[in-house]
């Protein structure tokens, strides 16, 4: 009796794990849409952090391209090194702040959904499924917000650079140069968002269902 039951449950488990990625996608999208403004606040944090990163990256590229093509005067190497390390420091700090901010809002989002998560677990959701929902949601937010962040940062820098360094310098960076910063921004933004979401998602997933049902918020 026990044997047949466990065999059955094993095959069942395989099917459970396999299917719902497409569904998980739509559930994650739905929950961003429903909590639109909350999601936008989280996204705004990512967006601003990545916009700042984009301005720094693009300015560095403008300077490099401008100097290489003789559009800008060769700077003092010592001053340039100092500026680079200061920028690195600033970007790192801003990204840390952004990461902590995302972790905070994801924790809130988990707390807010205790009951929902508990219900899903009662209905047979595996830990992995709950974790996947949160990670997918974070993934969407990360990609969209960092893309927009790159756009904002790039626009600001192109306009500012055009006026202060001259428009030829803006052009000297080249399409590939801008695309490369785009890839960096999206990768860094998404990875940070996922990293910040990992522990909140883990917390949600490992909660025993009864705990989730008990909390009345």
């Amino acid at each position: 009796m026990q044997q047949t039951y466990q065999n059955k449950s094993f095959t069942g488990q395989e099917r459970i794990l396999e299917l719902p990625l497409k569904k998980a996608f739509s559930i994650a999208l739905q929950s961003i849409r429903v909590r639109f403004w909350r999601s936008m606040v989280t996204a705004a944090g990512i967006l601003l952090g990545i916009a700042f990163l984009a301005t720094i990256l693009i300015r560095a590229r403008m300077d490099a391209a401008g100097i290489a093509q003789g559009l800008l005067p060769k700077p003092d190497p010592e001053a340039m090194a100092a500026a680079t390390s200061r920028n690195t420091w600033l970007v790192a700090m801003s990204l840390i702040v952004v990461t902590v901010g995302i972790a905070n809002s994801m924790l809130m989002s988990v707390t807010e959904r205790f009951k929902e998560i508990g219900t899903m677990k009662c209905l047979g959701a595996l830990d992995a499924f709950v974790r996947r929902l949160f990670m997918l949601e974070a993934g969407f937010l990360g990609v969209i917000a960092s893309s927009l962040g790159w756009l904002v940062g790039t626009l600001i820098m192109v306009i500012a650079g055009g006026f202060s360094k001259g428009w030829p310098v803006v052009g000297a960076v080249g399409i590939m140069g801008y695309l490369e910063t785009f890839v960096w921004c999206v990768v860094i933004g998404t990875v940070l968002t996922l990293a910040a979401t990992f522990f909140p998602a883990q917390k949600a997933a490992s909660m025993p269902p009864v705990m989730a049902l008990r909390s009345e918020i």
Binding site: S9, G12, L123, L126, P209
Partner: peptide, 10 residues
């Protein structure tokens, strides 16, 4: 855990 989830599900 997976078998428990299965039990709750089915």
């Amino acid at each position: 855990a997976a078998e428990l989830a299965y039990l709750r599900c089915r």
